[in-house]
Design a binder for these strands. Sequence first.
DNA 1: CGGCTCTTTGAATCACATCAAGGCCCGTGG
DNA 2: CCACGGGCCTTGATGTGATTCAAAGAGCCG
Lengths: 254, 254
Amino acid sequence: MDTKIHLASDAPCHHDFKTNCSNCRLNTLCLPLSLESKDIDALDAIVQRSKPIHKNEYLFHEGDVFNSIYAVRSGSIKAFATTDDGREQVTGFYFPGELLGMDGISRNIHASTAKALETSAVCEIPFDSLGELSAKIPNLQRHFFQLMSREITEDQQLITLLSKNSADERIAALLLSISSRNARRQLSANRFRLPMSRVDIGNYLGLTIETVSRVIGRLQKKSILQVDNKEVAILDFDALTEIAHTKVSHQEAS
Amino acid sequence: MDTKIHLASDAPCHHDFKTNCSNCRLNTLCLPLSLESKDIDALDAIVQRSKPIHKNEYLFHEGDVFNSIYAVRSGSIKAFATTDDGREQVTGFYFPGELLGMDGISRNIHASTAKALETSAVCEIPFDSLGELSAKIPNLQRHFFQLMSREITEDQQLITLLSKNSADERIAALLLSISSRNARRQLSANRFRLPMSRVDIGNYLGLTIETVSRVIGRLQKKSILQVDNKEVAILDFDALTEIAHTKVSHQEAS
DNA sequence: CGGCTCTTTGAATCACATCAAGGCCCGTGG
DNA sequence: CCACGGGCCTTGATGTGATTCAAAGAGCCG
């Protein structure tokens, strides 16, 4: 989409303008990292960059045959499972540089549905090819194990949050998590736009939308936040951290 | 233990009676499975079988340097994280044939503590060696990816349980989970002993011990369960399944 | 403008937590 | 053998944070 200008050139060099793993500015967040350039090229060769998906479009559905995992390049994705009575349990929000779909590996069937919260670009990484490549590139294998393990520790942090923390603490922890993930991408840690609705927040944190709304209202009244619909400004970072006394340490891949 | 009779033989073949991966009766539950015998031997060579650990002893602590994952051979283990205010969040109970410790891979530091609920035997599997071996044996790599993925889906089921289900539903789901894991090991699905205390159950399900106790009492009054301290008999399996309407499908590795 | 969906706010209710007491089991020691 | 103490579990009375129900405001689009 943002490469259309170059089509004027008649040389067969439109390839130069394509995104690839080595020029991707997220490549230290996503899979590569500490790979030699020939290894990055090998990885690049298996990664498929499809056209952007629009808000409310699906990347995969629960029950679909599992073939690939996905890396978010831009935008944001929510993953959720549907309970038998039709309610959504959001299992994660995924931002650029983050990987999703690893819950499909165990049964070769996706265990959750992934839906775009806004127009987003993703890299599709066929899992079989990734496995083969991992066997040849020890660093890649290790890194992928680490990414799966990170998903596990993050799920366990969410378990603790749901099990032990009040509504205020849960909301504070989520805001801080989004903030720190923004910072990791060199974006503002204090001002950002929430891509998800209040319903999604509720379905992630195990709260109703009314409670979400009330907590946010409360935090505004205390001048900790300033919220205008989806736009959030964190006015008092320390106070927010204090409320979310739960440590939301954001581990980096080694 | 059940091989002692054979010691009468005077041939220098006491090795034959040592536990190893190929004669382990759990080997379809744990790592191997569909490996050729030379591959099982290679795996066997890196697995360390230490002496049994006793009730309340630790396998590893949160914060310890991560070196190995562990497979339970007998007994049972609980894994938990400690919140900053000192409370325990139990993240899982592990029975024979199940693997734990994978949350330590991402940062090379254990993210949880593992403690024996009763006298237990475990296999220690050094992770570096497992990685190297995985690179050589595609089936092993795939199987290990699947095991990690299973941990993710199970954590996500717990997230849903905590977020969406009542105390009664949570307890019913846990009992059914233990029941089906017993069945997988050819044990009774209807009568078993809970190795964990009410406190542990509460810390796993996000409930207080009083609530756990009340729910169990209620289920007894309805003649769905018969409970004598830690001994549980499921009298009405269908009713229990009905209460835990959450599907606790127990996926098997393909 | 009207008709959506999403969000906010208030009042009533409920499920679970908290507080408090008592029971049971088991080991230890007189 | 019984008495005592300490875990662990159960049961009841009371409190409370979050849900539920209800209604109205705010943003968005045809």
